[in-house]
């Protein structure tokens, strides 16, 4: 926990939507997000669908250019990289997508899928076939899978292939964008175990995006909670589960179903009314105040910044100012 590997400062990503002829509105998918990811840790990002967590993952890796903000990788400003440095950055950072069914080119064999990146970047891998087979073994697949096509695999196996593709580049930083949300629970468990083990083995730094709190808790050491384009609370994973500060985090954590009938029926639930605001027309002030049971006058006027409660806990809420 020394220097951050990746620092995000006030990152914004807006998508234009055309209204009339020339007038444009913006979907504020990511709207001023700052956080650090330290070497060797898994940083969890949790939030509901449409909160911008997927866009955040892609913008951090520059798969879409950010609208504003800064991204520092090992202290260097990624947005100022020249072409050569950019290619190097692409090699060192990888992503595993949510949908294993469309993230593999249906016309490539598994061998081609995995070897394409290293081959393109001229990475020396020794005997390519042996290299791919060793990767396949690492993700729990077999040698005879080498020359098969994606459609011959189940969802879980496809996700393993996608992970092998990312690992083939020997990355330092990997974004896992809901890697198991399209899979069945019994398959999910083995994939999560595998990612966790690989992370330890290879010393990977990662960002784990999910809507499933239990999964994020299992996977990551620190968690950022996102609500409509903004991180409202960052904290140590275990501490966050013990006590939530932001009213949204509190409601979110209290409404996840727990796979235990007695616990889940007895606990006190905070059910917040209404739905998240549209990321096009955000309310002035705090974006949670229309649903917030503790809303104060200031919440309607001014947007709270992330403030430090202690070294491990940041929260964006006027209650703690």
């Amino acid at each position: 926990m020394s220097e951050p590997l990746l620092s995000i400062r006030n990152l914004k990503k807006y998508f234009p939507v055309r209204r009339f002829l020339l007038a444009k509105d913006y979907v504020k998918a990511v709207d001023g997000v700052s956080f650090d990811i330290y070497e060797g840790e898994m940083f969890g990002v949790v939030g509901e669908s449409g909160c911008g967590k997927t866009t955040l993952g892609r913008t951090v890796l520059l798969l879409t250019p950010p609208t504003a903000g800064e991204i520092y990788y090992r202290g260097e400003d990624v947005l100022k990289y020249d072409n050569k440095k950019m290619i190097e950055f692409r090699r060192k950072t990888q992503i595993v997508f949510q949908d294993p069914y469309s993230s593999l080119d249906p016309r490539q064999t598994i061998f081609d899928v995995i070897i394409e990146g290293p081959r393109y970047h001229g990475i020396d891998v020794g005997d390519p076939e042996e290299f791919v087979i060793s990767l396949l073994r690492k993700v729990g697949l077999e040698e005879y899978h080498l020359y098969r096509y994606p459609h011959e695999f189940s969802g879980g196996q496809k996700q393993r292939i996608a992970i092998a593709r990312a690992l083939a580049m020997n990355p330092e930083f990997v974004v896992f964008d809901e890697p198991t949300s399209a899979l069945d629970v019994s398959v999910q468990a083995s994939i999560l175990n595998m990612i966790k083990q690989l992370q330890k083995e290879l010393g990977l730094t990662g960002m784990f995006i999910s809507h499933d709190l239990a999964v994020v808790k299992f996977m990551s050491q620190r968690i950022g909670v996102m609500y409509v384009g903004k991180i409202v609370e960052i904290g140590d994973s275990d501490e966050l589960f013990k006590e939530q500060l932001h009213p949204y985090t509190r409601a979110l954590f209290s409404s996840i179903p727990i796979p235990n009938p007695q616990k889940t029926r007895l606990r006190k639930k905070i059910i917040i009314r209404g739905e998240p605001p549209s990321p096009i027309h955000l309310p002035k002030g705090c974006r949670f105040y229309p649903r917030c049971p503790y809303a104060m006058p200031i919440c309607k006027v001014e947007e709270p910044d992330l403030i430090e409660i202690n070294a491990n806990r940041h929260v964006a809420c006027w209650l703690y100012r």
Partner: peptide
């Protein structure tokens, strides 16, 4: 038993999950 064991419970400290081997 396998199904219940492989679902992560957010209220518990978990070191590892217990998947069901094999496929459907």
């Amino acid at each position: 038993q396998g199904l219940i064991n492989c679902v992560p419970d957010p209220t518990k400290e978990l070191k590892e999950l217990y998947p069901i081997a094999g496929t459907v």
